[in-house]
């Protein structure tokens, strides 16, 4: 396959970046998208040019590192996969592919396609934990009965890998899907009840402080989320938040 890549290049957080065209040849349908970029980078290095920097780690859709806006969509055109799970067979010979970093004020570009998603970590730190007594009399988690539906919903929310595609896709750069998944995962379990009131308020406060936008229910996040995190989580977070606020 012969392709034209239009890639965002930016030296560091302070400089302005721009799109640069890279023609590339010999791409096979069985290559993953990141392998295709590896091929490009080997060519660039051989020519003595700076390789294109992008985030990746597990390359199997579980770590949430990879984060590319491909042809106007986070993680590219396919559904329920991350960028590292996207294969070149999703493209045709002669295609032009635009590759940009995930865009949000709260995700500043570090270099080229790498963005700083520390804002997600800070939302998590604000309340995404449970306090467990580990002084020797810890109750076995399996000894606490949990309603099956709640257990399943909590598990589904916990599959969020914190990739940030929800923010990247949202026209408002809102982080509600991520935050609501993190709130829901605890809100649905008995272990999460102790800090429930404080948790949702603290996480929403942090989300707002980081400068993410307001949710207007376009639903783009749910469609683009590689883990299929449902909008039901956002509705749940809204309920949790309003009831927490009324309790003070």
């Amino acid at each position: 396959m012969k392709l034209t890549l239009k890639i965002w290049r930016q030296d560091n957080a302070k400089t302005k970046g721009k799109m640069i065209d890279y023609p590339i040849d010999g791409i096979e349908g069985d290559m993953s998208f990141l392998e295709m970029l590896d091929v490009l980078n080997e060519e660039l290095v051989a020519k003595g040019e700076e390789p294109v920097e992008f985030d990746h780690d597990c390359r199997e859709g579980i770590c949430g590192s990879c984060s590319l806006q491909i042809n106007g969509e986070p993680h590219g055109p396919d559904r329920l996969i991350t960028t590292c799970q996207l294969h070149m067979r999703s493209f045709k010979d002669g295609d032009t592919i635009t590759i940009e970093p995930f865009r949000a004020k709260a995700f500043p570009v570090v270099k080229d396609l790498i963005v700083d998603r520390g804002s997600f970590d800070r939302i998590q730190q604000a309340g995404g934990y449970v306090s467990v007594n580990t002084s020797g009399n810890t109750v076995d988690a399996n000894a606490i009965p949990v309603n099956k539906q709640n257990a399943d919903d909590s598990f589904a929310a916990a599959t969020c890998i914190g990739c940030g595609a929800c923010v990247a896709a949202c026209k408002n750069a809102s982080a509600m899907l991520f935050t609501s998944a993190k709130v829901s995962q605890y809100a649905l379990l008995p272990q999460g009840q102790i800090e429930a009131t404080e948790r949702v308020q603290a996480m929403v406060r942090q989300m707002d402080e980081e400068g993410f936008g307001n949710c207007s229910n376009t639903g783009a996040c749910e469609i683009e989320c590689p883990k299929g995190i449902s909008l039901e989580n956002i509705a749940r977070m809204n309920r949790e938040y309003m009831s927490a606020t009324s309790k003070g």
Binding site: K6, W8, M19, Q69, N71, G72, E73, P77, T98, E100, R103, A104, K105, A106, P108, V109, A169, K171, N172, A173, S174, G211, F212, G213, N214, S216, N217, T218, G219, A220, I223, E224
Partner: peptide, 22 residues
């Protein structure tokens, strides 16, 4: 919400994931 994006996308395919109305 416009501020929250910061630098805009060169290519943003909103139709792929949301309605024009929304």
């Amino acid at each position: 919400n416009r501020n929250a994006r910061g630098v805009g996308y060169k290519n943003y395919n909103g139709n792929a994931n949301s309605s024009w109305m929304s």
